[in-house]
């Protein structure tokens, strides 16, 4: 019974669903305020979701129908499974030594599904977007993984919860490894395909990337997956780089965790309002020539300090 509640309500699907919509709203609202606009009302993400669910579901001719139906479900499942292993404010769904690696693997699955979504489509924009998403995945995932490894090395554990608790006794990894945090943040933007690294779905170039031919329920699921991925990515960074609640011993852990997550979300929103989109070759340059070496330096520094 307890496990069912954990899976369906907290920190499983129900909580994640609400958090995904809320984060989407905060993000859109923040960007709108940066632009000098008002932005959408709070129910807009939910309304969009419901509207998409109700819309006609068209499968374009030449598209593999079964795969098109399966891919959003697969990626949503992967993301929701990952959510069980990411502690929310110290509350753990499930935890074991090495769950960080499982989570990273599960969060990589949607990227693969995203590429396949482009591959099975008949449209040229989808195929091009799929290729781009794979290229982007390679250049962003490597620095992200390397940066995420650093707190684990320092804590001497591969369990997210233990890394988080370790920081409660010492200090935030973001303070001891600022470079690693920035790299992880950039990597996360690339993984989530957010502005300014929304290269696979750049509107003025490839229309909507791999999702160009999707509509109705499938598109709604894709959007939900994306939003949940954003939430989980942020939760992961909070646990790894702002773990514990050492500075706020008197306040309950959950609101503190929420505040930290929103702070990271605001960093992402600011980045998307700040920069123009990079070209894919420029991103490869950035990923392999700048981010990856810097991540290597961070790992070496961490090994040297934490030994």
């Amino acid at each position: 019974m307890n496990a069912l509640i954990k899976m369906l309500i907290f920190p499983g699907f129900g909580f994640l669903f609400i958090a995904a919509l809320a984060f989407d709203w905060i993000d859109r609202r923040m960007i709108a305020r940066f632009h000098g606009r008002v932005g959408p009302p709070w129910y807009q993400p939910l309304a969009d979701f419901i509207k998409l669910l109700a819309k006609e579901d068209v499968v374009a001719e030449g598209t593999h129908g079964l795969a098109a139906a399966a891919l959003p479900i697969v990626s949503l499942t992967a993301v929701m499974t990952a959510s069980l292993y990411i502690p929310v404010g110290g509350i753990v769904g499930a935890s074991f030594e090495g769950d960080l690696i499982v989570v990273l693997f599960l969060l990589a699955l949607p990227a693969l599904a995203y590429f396949l979504a482009g591959w099975i489509s008949a449209g040229v924009y989808s195929v091009l977007g799929g290729h781009r998403s794979l290229l982007q995945y390679f250049s962003c995932e490597v620095p992200f993984l390397m940066a995420v490894t650093c707190p684990a090395i320092l804590a001497g554990s591969w369990s997210i919860n233990e890394i988080s608790n370790f920081q409660a006794q010492t200090a935030w990894s973001a303070l001891t490894q600022p470079l690693g945090f920035i790299l992880a943040l950039i990597g996360l933007i690339g993984k989530l395909k957010r502005d300014p690294l929304d290269i696979p779905k750049a509107k003025s170039e490839v229309v909507a990337g791999p999702l160009t031919d999707f509509s109705g329920r499938k598109l709604a699921l894709w959007h939900l997956t994306m939003n949940m991925q954003t939430v989980l990515g942020i939760f992961l960074l909070v646990n790894l780089f702002f773990g514990g609640s050492r500075f706020f011993n008197r306040v309950p852990a959950l609101p503190v965790f929420g505040l930290k997550s929103v702070a990271i979300l605001l960093m992402l929103s600011t980045a998307s309002a700040l920069y123009a989109r990079l070209r894919i070759d420029q991103l490869m340059d950035l990923g392999w020539r700048i981010l990856a070496p810097l991540a290597l330096i961070q790992i070496l520094a961490t090994l040297w300090i934490g030994g």
């Binding site: 940066f34 003025s204 920069y275 989109r277």
Partner: peptide, 16 residues
């Protein structure tokens, strides 16, 4: 131009 290179902020400011 800003919209097409993904810099929506400048798009909004310029049109404002």
């Amino acid at each position: 131009l800003a919209r097409n290179v993904g810099l929506d902020t400048i798009f909004m400011y310029a049109w404002r």
